[in-house]
Amino acid sequence: MTEDIKTTPPASVTPAEKDDNALGRRGFFRWMTVGWIAFSAATGGFFTVIVRFLFPNVLFEPPQTFKAGFPNDYASNFVDTRYKKKFNVWMVRDEESIFALSTVCTHLGCTPNWLGTENKFKCPCHGSGFRMTGINFEGPAPRPLERYKISVATDGQILVDKTKSFKWEKGEWENAESFLKV
């Protein structure tokens, strides 16, 4: 009995019995290739469609540029919080320049508060602190606040463009567009 079980099945198709319609080894691999390409194209395509669907072409967001009054409106060494609520920008004037600081904490995007008495921005979420210039000095924030592009419009008012930002750690605060000389 045991020998019966052990006998191997007859050897695979011998050339003599080969059917003309049967798929040869080569043909098999050819079809496999076509099959796999079709499979990858279908899944890959479907996946691409899904991912791309998450990113609309048009965004309905508030305008990214605004006018922030005349340079002489600002006293030196003063942080102006007027534009914080509407545009998420602090207008800061130090001794020699005016710049537009982003109100987005570089840690996790909360909005810090300007504490005039302590002369610093303090984030309520995780306690990051920034100096008036935007340089981070305490708490977990990894880098300084970003500055926005600032220029003088034709009517003499300051024009802040939030679509372009300048990062200190990349040396971009040297860029002439990141501040206004006064």
């Binding site: 914080k84 909005t111 508060n113 309520p124 979420c125 995780h126 708490g139 977990p140």
Partner: peptide, 27 residues
């Protein structure tokens, strides 16, 4: 109100362990 972050501003309680970690590590 996107302009005013409450102070302090806390995550849901079951994520406060994570929020505490955020004080010591980069996001």
């Amino acid at each position: 109100n996107p302009a005013a972050t409450p102070n302090p501003s806390k995550a849901p309680w079951y994520f406060l362990g994570l929020q505490e970690m955020l004080v010591y590590f980069d996001p």
